[in-house]
């Protein structure tokens, strides 16, 4: 017994010696003089501070510049409340739609072979490569008074542009790739064998989807939804074109921030901006957690 303990002690001692050697070897590889290293690191930190940390601090500093009461008063304004509500509604609609579309598209692309597949993959990426302003303009061309469906819509008294449906449509278009993009590589890597096994065991298509496919991609789905949501809430360009900027009705949070800022209402503008900044921070944290989960899933399947 004592022998064993002695053994393990000496083992760990040599172990730590080996580690020290490895660290020394690593240090030797860094041939840059200390001064150069310090300068490079300082530059990187400076850059990060000026371009990332400082803006974030300024947003919150400005938001609270007249005190915490002014901050909450700005958020409680009917206009602000309406913008927050609209943003949440639009995000819910577009995330919901893109969850369904993204799942269907990823499923089709990853699990089946069909002509035109490459074209479909390219098409899914279209919203990423097109400027959001143009994405918005497309909907004006389709549903505007002079647009293709304009007169028909007027006859049936359906309001799409300058109303919630138009904003939701534009946002959905702009955020379409997120869920599909997150899922396609994941589903392609997992292949179709588990689904084939499920079907040969007597499962129906729906049972296979809900019991086998979905549980295997749940972290990927959450990841896609998270990014989709962040973009949906923050979208400015496309929404700006189709919204019409009707105060208290068709202004989302990003639009309201701009309007308030242009009217020199800095506290109100930055109070709403601070909400968007917080959304970004929460998204970042959740993203890190989800990425870890996805990596673990990958490791487990590697064994």
């Amino acid at each position: 017994m004592t022998m064993q303990i002695a053994d393990s002690v000496s083992l760990s001692a040599s172990d730590s010696k080996a580690r020290a050697h490895a660290a020394a070897a690593r240090n030797n590889l860094r041939t840059e003089p200390r001064a150069v290293r310090i300068i490079i690191i300082t530059l990187a930190l400076l850059f990060l501070t000026v371009f990332v940390v400082l803006p974030l601090v300024v947003v919150f500093a400005q938001a609270f510049s007249r005190g915490i009461l002014a901050y909450f008063a700005a958020l409680a304004e009917p206009e602000a409340m309406a913008a927050i509500k609209l943003t949440l509604i639009v995000a819910a609609i577009s995330v919901g739609l893109n969850l369904v579309f993204g799942l269907v598209a990823a499923w089709a692309i990853a699990k089946f072979e069909f002509p035109g597949k490459t074209f479909l993959i390219t098409l899914i990426d279209l919203p990423f490569s097109v400027s959001p302003v143009i994405s918005g303009l497309v909907f004006v061309l389709l549903f505007g008074a002079q647009g293709y469906f304009g007169s028909w819509l007027r006859e049936h008294d359906i309001q799409i542009l300058f109303a919630v449906p138009g904003i939701a449509l534009a946002t959905t278009f702009v955020t379409f790739p997120f869920v599909a993009r997150a899922l396609i590589p994941l589903m392609q890597e997992q292949g179709t064998q588990e689904e084939e096994a499920a079907i040969s065991l007597g499962a129906s298509g729906l049972q296979t989807f809900f019991r086998v496919t979905l549980p295997n991609i749940k972290w990927g789905v959450l990841y896609g939804v998270l990014l989709c949501n962040a973009r949906a809430m923050g979208e400015f360009g496309a929404v700006s074109v189709v919204s019409g900027h009707i105060r208290g009705e068709t202004n989302t949070m990003p639009l309201l921030v701009e309007i308030l800022y242009n009217e020199y209402q800095f506290v109100a503008a930055f109070a709403i901006a601070s909400l968007l900044a917080m959304l970004a921070l929460i998204t970042l944290i959740a993203k890190t957690v989800l990425e870890r989960q996805l990596d673990e899933g990958q490791d487990a399947s590697d064994h």
Partner: peptide
Amino acid sequence: GARERHVGFVFQHYALFRHMTVFENVAFG
């Protein structure tokens, strides 16, 4: 279809359901 044929299939790379326990894998059918 494969579902109606009542054929047991064992895959080369096992194709076990990775998110289920061994027990649930066997119980699936």
